[in-house]
Amino acid sequence: MISFVLNALRTTVHNIKANKQVFLMSVATITIAFTIQGLFFLVFVNLNTLLSTWDKQVQLIVYLDDGISKGQKNVLEEIFKSNEKVDSISYDSRDEAWTEFKNTFSGKSGFVTDLGFNPLPASYNLKFKDDPERLVNIRQLADLLKEQKGVESLEYGEKWISRFENFMVFLRVFILAVGGILSVGLILIISNTIKLSIYSRRDEFDLMLLLGATHRFIKAPLLLEGLVQGVIGVGLALGIVKLTHIYMKFNFQGSLESIFRGVDFQFLTQPLLWAMVLASIFIGWVGSFLSITQYLHSTDRE
């Protein structure tokens, strides 16, 4: 077994040396394809972080009718308190809202101080507990509150969050589609590389079969060659993606923080990194497997 493994490793190194140029072309192609995929993932991961940061900041503001009765307020407060997902409740009366508004805008426009009445409604401000389903919880409570008497309107930025969520779904599908197409392309390229490697040494492989080599003995080094192509290719691609991440962080972190407080440029998550490495190994293996199987079939007795 040990001699089999050693021989497979030696033959793989020999194959790579003998077909250096084709091998490097193949690695370069894998690198380019996985860099593209990795950059898409990088964009996706960061947009996802942004979305979850916004999700955390989302609050449900319940604006009340001016003529809401005390009983109606009690009913609303009961609903809030009985909802386990609600973390805190604060109440802003009309007067408090107006005072805060004036404090914020008095210096900016005379119109605010000149206005002879208070146009702002009283409101409840609900914060929700940390939960991956936070937005769903907010929506459910909002749907329930819509029907309640004394509620004038609800505000939680639903429309733009929905749009953003839809965009993320689209991005996910897009990345998967691009990944799928790139994978098929890579399998064909690796398959052709190994095929070239086989055909350039066809006499040697034929001789191996004549001398009594098992199919496993012939397959192992070629499969290993495909795997090595995959591993080196994805390693270089991840290196490029990491450099891009460092560059972005170094140059644009300040700008990002000034727009979105507390948001940091993220690198690919562990599961994504592993998915890319495994996908590359799988692609290398399948590419090699296809061409070896084709070669061995061509040697079948007629």
Partner: peptide, 22 residues
């Protein structure tokens, strides 16, 4: 079958006119 042919070939030494050396 094709994957068992090696059992036969290991019992035979074959020599060719064109040597088939690497």
């Amino acid at each position: 079958n094709e994957s068992n042919l090696y059992t036969l070939r290991r019992k035979i030494g074959v020599v060719f006119q064109d040597y088939k050396l690497l």
